[in-house]
Design a binder for these strands. Sequence first.
DNA 1: GTCTATAATTCGATAGAC
DNA 2: GTCTATCGAATTATAGAC
Lengths: 211, 211
Amino acid sequence: MLYFNEMATVKKKKKTDGAEEKILSAARKLFTEKGFDAVKTRDIAKEAGINLALLNYYFRSKENLFVIIMKENMAKFMEVITKIVDNEETSLEQKIEVLVANYIDILSVNPDMPLFVIRNSRIDDQRMKMRGKFMNSYFMEQVQDSIKKGKIENINPANLILNIVGLTIFPFVAHRMFQSANGFTQKEFNELMQERKKLIPKWIEAMLKVK
Amino acid sequence: MLYFNEMATVKKKKKTDGAEEKILSAARKLFTEKGFDAVKTRDIAKEAGINLALLNYYFRSKENLFVIIMKENMAKFMEVITKIVDNEETSLEQKIEVLVANYIDILSVNPDMPLFVIRNSRIDDQRMKMRGKFMNSYFMEQVQDSIKKGKIENINPANLILNIVGLTIFPFVAHRMFQSANGFTQKEFNELMQERKKLIPKWIEAMLKVK
DNA sequence: GTCTATAATTCGATAGAC
DNA sequence: GTCTATCGAATTATAGAC
């Protein structure tokens, strides 16, 4: 009986258990899956199991709620890059390995994230921060250094980035189409991605020897 | 003066010159660029330079018009694959070369097409047709054959396809974000793609030697 | 075939009771 | 904090004149 008394004192106001968080979860799911325009505030309220008015009570507007979700997603993307790309302790090969592995792990749990970010890049006020993150990184210094030393062939940095990101992220961008086209289950798809985690760094390495 | 007489007899009814086709063009442009929900029928009518009611006169509904554009885009994608992949006259290397070159040429003119197709794969009733197109093709026979003969390493066919398609198409999927993040002009981006047209087949070849 | 005007619906947001 | 009810704007679709 003690438990109930304790619980009663914790919350002072009547509250649908974690309404704010439930709305956020619903918004995250639907916006990431379908994009801003396709999702209606009524859908979010229904998915969250609360009333339409409550959504506006907590978040003021649909736009506002959307921006929160978008920043969340962008932050996840940036976090990986930031941590890895300017580490002066790791080799070029290690960086590529960790970068690929980290992204595949995150995206295996959030497969719709890349498409969401790409679709909404127009609205994003932070995308510019990505500029330079790669290009002016210690990673790029290492690339230039390796080229000078003849360890890898001369490659356009833009191509290197497009290839790493493309090989890693494209399967997730296209995963719905790819899965239905090939009759893959979610599990089979994820196993394939785990396989790619090991292979992509090797493929990149092989590319870098191409004249 | 003969010309004018001829022209006068061709069309019997008063007609805003090619209204139907003008609506289609406008819809193609806007839908491909922005997607179904973000485009309003008023936008299409305005872009086409005709009245809103005329759009419904010709196409009955927004949904209907959209499906037409979507099938068009899917067909363009499939056409390239179909032509190339079952040709028994060309080598594996030639097929990859032609496939990549064809897609890059098409996408350089229609850079928003891939994202459009990916976004709307859920609505597409034809996507299943893609299944098998690759997997059961002469192309795949050639791959299996090359593996047997030890000319290339054993590779999961799904990975081969993901890599070819990913390297080729991903830059276009992400082109808006990529361009703004790197300060590329449209011209610079297209030049980069032309460069990749030559490089991607070489990269794929190098990958296929990876154990 | 093409237009103007308007009906019908959808959707984001708010007022106000509890 | 949470709900019901509803407003007001935007949007798709249609009626009806020319």
